[in-house]
Design a binder for these strands. Structure first.
Lengths: 208, 208
DNA sequence: GTCTATAGGACGATAGAC
DNA sequence: GTCTATCGTCCTATAGAC
């Protein structure tokens, strides 16, 4: 799995090294999942030894959790950029009603546009989402919460456009995930944003 | 992972033993994926030793392929039962145009009804589908073909109900997969068949 | 058809030097 | 902050007895 990587031969500041490890780990997990992840592989790609990596995150499971937390922050940031809203209007953690004052359809479109630019990240979440169905997976709770929060936020926003908001929310999430799955396998055969726009027209126009 | 299982202390006929191993392996993969699958775990649950299992399938990858082939046959059988058609009308391998003379909407509904009765199998495919995105996965080609064939078959059948059959086919597959994902995580909170019927009304009625 | 025995690694993690 | 050295466990797969 791991190719040959030379050692860096340099001591990086902890924060910088952590960031490097997190990004490389995300790429490896996107390929192999968490069960298929090897600390040796991560260490090689970072130009470190295994204990060198472990020092920063304590354990393999700790590393996974740190990757997910890091992605949450980065994803919130990039989504705000795509929507053109400030951090005050849309904090990293959405409140119960979802991001206040954002139109659901715009939010979905911005999300899909953003995702279309980062297939590796989409794949990271697709792989972990399936793997974490088993309760013994270290990201099981994370993805249980994630699904619950997404459904709650989308349902709250859907109240503006339909009288069956939860049904619409489920359909939107299902369609977004399903189209992304097809796109991940054959990116050249699927125009993710265009397919979503067509589907969104169907879902939203039927609701109103 | 593996609990305590006593040895069978009996020599089963090869065909029977193969079937037992295939079913147990399917359950383990549904939990842990292929990378997380341990031959020791399978052997314990079968009441065998590891070489005892390997004799029947040669290698871990061979076992996975055998599981998928076995599922294809079983799934075709159960789908025919749900649709009430004969093996002559709908062979295990669909022809290019999809199963001849079957209504697309009925086919989808029968599929979802069947899937709602076997969450472990749905989960098996969900986990392997994500894991096999990487080309080095032994089931990579299997799932690439599976997606291609499903799209081709659904597109062919969709020609009867819309003038944009591929778009509809993609949306149907996306919605079915997406709803199943949500159902897998919280089966008690999602009525899979009912959610699909609602979504199908939307997708098919907009198309005609 | 199933076993024991074993080869030959890879794994995650810890201890302690620098 | 990173290393070397090492522990103990798990892994797939093969050889050969019964």
């Amino acid at each position: 799995m791991a190719a040959s990587y030379r050692r860096d031969q340099q001591r990086l500041p902890a924060a910088e090294r952590r960031r490097q490890i997190l990004e490389i780990t995300a790429a490896v997990i996107a390929e192999c999942g968490f069960w298929g992840l090897s600390m040796q592989d991560v260490a090689d790609r970072c130009g470190l030894t295994v204990p060198g990596v472990l020092r920063h995150f304590g354990s393999k499971a700790g590393l996974l959790i740190a990757v997910l937390a890091h992605r949450d922050v980065e994803d919130a940031r990039s989504l705000r950029a795509h929507l053109g809203v400030s951090e005050a209007e849309m904090p990293d953690e959405w409140s119960e009603g979802g991001p206040a004052g954002v139109d659901l359809r715009q939010l979905c479109l911005a999300t899909m546009r953003r995702n279309a630019t980062q297939p590796e990240i989409v794949r990271l979440f697709a792989v972990l989402k399936a793997e974490s169905l088993t309760p013994s997976h270290p990201a099981h709770d994370y993805f249980a919460n994630r699904q619950h929060n997404a459904l709650a936020a989308f349902t709250a926003l859907a109240r503006d456009v339909t009288d069956r908001p939860e049904t619409l929310a489920r359909q939107i999430i299902a369609m977004m995930d399903g189209l992304q799955d097809q796109w991940l396998r054959t990116p050249e055969a699927v125009d993710l944003v265009h397919e979503w726009e067509t589907a969104a027209a169907l879902l939203f126009d039927a609701a109103t």
